[in-house]
Simulated scan of single mutants.
Amino acid sequence: MMQPMRLRLRRQGRASPLLCLSAAILAAALLPGAAVADGVTPSEARLLRDEVKDMFYHAFDGYMQHAFPLDELRPLSCQGEDSLGGYALTLIDSLDTLALLGDKERFAAGVEWVGKNVRFDINKTVSVFETNIRILGGLLSAHLIASDYATGMEIESYDGQLLHLSVDLAQRLLPAFDTPTGIPFGSVNLLYGVDDDESKITSTAGGGTLTLEFGVLSRLTNNTVFEQVAKKSVRGIWARRSKLNLVGAHINVFTGEWTQKDAGIGTSIDSFYEYVLKAYLLFGDEEYLYVFQEAYKAAMHYLHHDPWYIEVNMNSGATVWPLFNSLQAFWPGLQI
């Protein structure tokens, strides 16, 4: 049974750890004296920063001019399309970046528009993975930034609209978790739940990339259901690891059988590693740290072939794909 929902909005007094984290990230991004990488001078860092800023606004302004309020911009035709649900996905996904860039005017305008216009009681079947990381994550990060003065982006008129939307959306995703393994279906209809013909096969990343958003939402609402289902999904995947402590790429959410036994750090698996480490760092849960340490040791032993990482059979360790792929690019950042 769902627990009673109590929304907690901190607008003054001692900030929560989540809000402190938001403020720290914003400060690191905006302060002129922020640390730079070895071999990069402060002037070079400023040029690179400005180049990134220009790239963002080129993409964001193009979307707002040619595609908004549809989900995404088709770059060749300069036309918009509702590709992932039909709720101005790119705007929601960009709100925290606007804040990181110090663009309070457009951040505030975006938050206000989303709060007034976005609804999730729609007959659309959406990806649980994409909806979580891009929509739920975008709403929660913007809520944390907009509701705390320490970020420098507080919106005085903001009254928690994005948190209410987050709760509504997450509740509509919950039917996907109703499986024998606890690992969710890959897609869910926002109005009717899981379609009768929905595939029972999902990726490891799809089942292991939910803990941050669902965990934050549980802490903001005092409703433990969200964090519980996300953690059960991680446990469901990890319990089915091989004797080598490797996980495969795709799994049947009903039987728990691996349908693709290729283990790697890239496609279909990548963010499983990312989220178990970040869940420990954000929530202090030692179980996530244990999973990461064991999975990381196995990855470095069986997958690391200097200077890149390969894919192997999760049971035997035999090479099945000796090539690097672009979704492995996050790994060095995880190792820092």
Score class of each variant (00 low, 15 high):
residue 199 S to F: 03
residue 251 I to K: 03
residue 234 V to M: 11
residue 77 S to K: 14
residue 25 I to A: 10
residue 92 I to V: 15
residue 207 G to M: 04
residue 123 N to H: 13
residue 24 A to P: 03
residue 333 G to Q: 14
residue 290 Y to T: 13
residue 121 D to T: 10
residue 256 G to S: 07
residue 130 E to L: 01
residue 53 K to T: 15
residue 300 M to C: 13
residue 242 S to H: 09
residue 211 T to H: 08
residue 144 L to E: 00
residue 228 Q to F: 07
residue 200 K to S: 09
residue 177 F to M: 03
residue 37 A to H: 13
residue 99 A to S: 09
residue 62 G to T: 02
residue 258 W to P: 01
residue 24 A to L: 13
residue 159 D to M: 05
residue 31 L to H: 13
residue 193 G to I: 04
residue 196 D to W: 09
residue 60 F to S: 03
residue 10 R to H: 12
residue 68 F to S: 05
residue 132 N to V: 02
residue 196 D to T: 14
residue 275 Y to L: 04
residue 288 Y to S: 04
residue 180 P to R: 07
residue 330 F to T: 02
residue 12 Q to N: 12
residue 181 T to G: 02
residue 164 H to Y: 03
residue 254 F to C: 07
residue 21 L to E: 12
residue 191 L to H: 07
residue 89 L to H: 15
residue 48 L to M: 11
residue 234 V to L: 11
residue 194 V to I: 06
residue 162 L to D: 00
residue 211 T to P: 04
residue 78 C to R: 15
residue 200 K to R: 13
residue 3 Q to D: 14
residue 25 I to Y: 07
residue 320 V to D: 08
residue 197 D to G: 13
residue 193 G to T: 06
residue 254 F to K: 07
residue 320 V to N: 10
residue 124 K to C: 04
residue 17 P to V: 01
residue 96 D to W: 05
residue 265 I to F: 10
residue 116 K to F: 05
residue 190 L to G: 01
residue 144 L to P: 01
residue 194 V to F: 04
residue 174 L to M: 15
residue 2 M to W: 07
residue 26 L to P: 03
residue 111 V to E: 00
residue 50 D to E: 15
residue 115 G to Q: 10
residue 65 Q to A: 12
residue 263 A to D: 08
residue 130 E to C: 05
residue 54 D to P: 06
residue 112 E to M: 08
residue 316 S to V: 02
residue 173 L to N: 00
residue 332 P to A: 06
residue 212 L to S: 02
residue 310 I to K: 12
residue 105 E to C: 07
residue 141 S to H: 05
residue 141 S to W: 02
residue 243 K to Q: 10
residue 103 D to C: 05
residue 187 S to W: 07
residue 152 G to D: 09
residue 88 A to N: 11
residue 155 I to Q: 05
residue 333 G to D: 14
residue 292 F to V: 08
residue 321 W to L: 10
residue 329 A to E: 13
residue 107 F to E: 00
residue 210 L to V: 01
residue 283 F to I: 00
residue 245 N to P: 04
residue 309 Y to S: 09
residue 290 Y to V: 10
residue 330 F to I: 04
residue 88 A to V: 01
residue 248 G to V: 04
residue 105 E to M: 09
residue 84 L to H: 15
